[in-house]
Amino acid sequence: MAKHRGVGMAAVNYPTGMNLGGDPSQALIHATTTGTFVITLSSTDLGQGLKTVIAQIGAEALGVPFENVLIDTADTDTGPHCMGTFASRATHRVGNAVIRAAEEARKVMFEVASEELEVAPEDLETDGQGNIRVKGSPEHSINIVDLALAAHFKYGKTISGRGMYIKPKSEVDPDTGAMDPDSTEAHACTVAEVEVDDETGEVKVLSIKSAYEIGRQVNPKLVEGQIQGGSLMGMAHALYETTAPYYPAIDHAPGGFNEYIVPGPQDQPEIESVVLEYPSVNGPFGVKGVGEMTANSPIPAIINAIHDAVGVWITELPATPEKILRALEEKRKEEERGAE
């Protein structure tokens, strides 16, 4: 009777967006005369930080400071349509819509600045600090507040833009399964180290270490949040969680957190990661998406690590102590039969 260590790995892909497309999102942008750029949406933030990353994408695309961008969501009376936050789609779809809206708004900004600075629009640029300036001559510039005031009071223009992103809905060929099931593919590779107690059947995950390739990180700390939380959710899926403890029977379905094991602060293993960026073809600034994928690769990596530790394949989730002990017993019997 002893504790055995094992290491397992898994490599996965994850597709971005509703699999057959047809999932639009819109964004509207307008500048008030205070120099605030309001991005109006009907998109939801689940905690992953959509309101923040969309403000970053909007500020970047408009060329204005992050602080000058305001996200107004989510109200169906004022916000344009968004399909919703799921399928790792929100940053990709909404971000693309915001970039398109920003392009339209920028065009007006440059027209107005061109009048005020008396140079052609193509000779202007934003400095990201709140000014539009003449290329190569940064002392000739106009602040965005003055620009917004001039647009409104002097030139009778609205600094505004409309943005829309849709991947057209595609069909599945019923006979071959030919289809277009993604917008881009993100990737993860996880290595898990476990310790399996062959007396109690308990598995302790020592570490979950992963590499992710997600196109571009809009906000690395928010990406890290997805990685940490997703890794722990994946671990719990591999080892603890089920709404049917006697599957397929439905008896003893848990009714709360006293019976359904969501990991707590003391259950968290060491979680470490690196993030690669190979910008995608069609994501905003090359974004792919990270939300869902982080919970996937730890599951098989842990199951493979258990095999590496004690030589049994647990192919029914979760890998409870009971399943591990039964598998070990079966393995011992087989070895005895082999020895005879």
């Binding site: 490599a11 993604d182 990737h187 590779c189 270490k209 992710y212 390739e213 470490e272």
Partner: peptide, 20 residues
């Protein structure tokens, strides 16, 4: 499903994990 792969980086991701 007949779609041509265009954003694959599985090998690069595995190399980075191995290094980690």
């Amino acid at each position: 499903h007949r779609k041509v792969v265009e954003d694959a980086t599985l090998i690069e991701t595995m190399k980075a994990a191995a290094q980690l």
